[in-house]
Amino acid sequence: MIFLTNFFNWITNFKGELAALSAAFLWAIASLVYSRLGRQIPPLELNLFKGIIAIAFLVFTLLLQGQLLPEINPTALTLLLLSGVLGIGLGDTAYFAAINCLGARRTLILETLAPPLTAVLALVFLQEQLTAAAWCGILLTILGVVWVVTERVPNSTAESKHLTMRGISWGLLAAVAQATGAVLSRTALIQSSISPLWSTLVRLGAGVLVLLLWKLLGQRQVNGWLKPLQSWRIVGVIAITAFFSTYLGIWLQQISLKFAPAGIAQTLSSTSPLFVLPLAVWMGDVVSFRAILGVLVALGGVAVLFSLR
């Protein structure tokens, strides 16, 4: 009984950090699916479709829970809307575009800029002080992730041909947009009583609305960009992936930003490459000693972040 009590207390104390790691795990699985879907669906359409499906799941969940409209001040609402526009509308679209240009590995290297940038922005705008140990934990985690994703893999010459300035620009834009979106969301969550579920819906709604306007202005014939949805198989894959990566993933991200400092939450949310390795082994790929060593370094950084509480 004492063990169970201590265990539940530990989960309660670290619910922000655990939520961030859970989101990273879901995004790792989703990245494998999105890398294949990206060959058939352009980045903007893919981001739009998964956002609409996730909104449907969120609305259904809120109806089941009977949650009424939350009381939220206009400032917090504006911050969440901006967070959705930047982090989801712009950031995720830029991320998918970078994957198409650079491949998953190089895009993930650029994504490692998001956690330290988030921590710096939170320090400047939220006065969210991190200890020297916390910065060391963030640095170790990022180094471990970079070590994993920069490993040379066989037959990767085709991927290197897509290393263009356009892809690098998309990757940098994605990192900046996601870091800014995370800090805006963190600000709204700590300055209001809105639940992470409602904040997820607000952010997604804002992001999807911007994407929809963006697409309608660029291509007014709806039939053209709805063509991929004529395949029920593709619709099913998008729906299942959106449920786990967007609906659950962003909900968990909002929980992490609610209960953990922005820099730590963003760092732990960026550990998806570490979860990809066991999936790669399960799929029959060979994982090198260097990759395993990179995981151990990153896990050391995660352990440091957990030890600070």
Results as ranks from 00 to 15, higher is better:
I55H: 09
L46G: 01
T107R: 06
Y34H: 05
I29H: 00
L62D: 00
Q67P: 03
I99K: 07
L37K: 05
L69Y: 11
I29N: 02
V59H: 05
P115Q: 01
I29L: 09
T93D: 09
R36E: 05
G51R: 01
S83V: 10
L48H: 00
G103L: 14
R36Q: 10
F125C: 08
L113V: 12
L32T: 04
F57M: 07
K50H: 07
V124K: 08
A30R: 04
I52S: 00
A30V: 11
V124A: 11
D92S: 10
P42R: 10
L90Q: 05
E45R: 03
A94R: 03
G38E: 08
P42W: 11
L37S: 10
G66Q: 12
Q40D: 10
V33P: 07
W27T: 06
Y34S: 06
L58S: 10
L86H: 01
S83A: 15
L80A: 14
A119D: 06
L80T: 09
T112C: 02
A122P: 12
R105A: 12
L82R: 08
L79A: 06
C101E: 12
L82W: 12
E45K: 04
L86P: 03
I109E: 10
L90P: 04
L86K: 06
A30F: 11
L64A: 14
F57P: 03
P70S: 15
Q67E: 15
T61K: 11
F96S: 02
E111P: 03
G91H: 06
V124Y: 07
L62P: 00
A76I: 13
A56Y: 10
L121A: 13
L48S: 00
A122S: 14
L90K: 02
R106D: 02
G89Q: 03
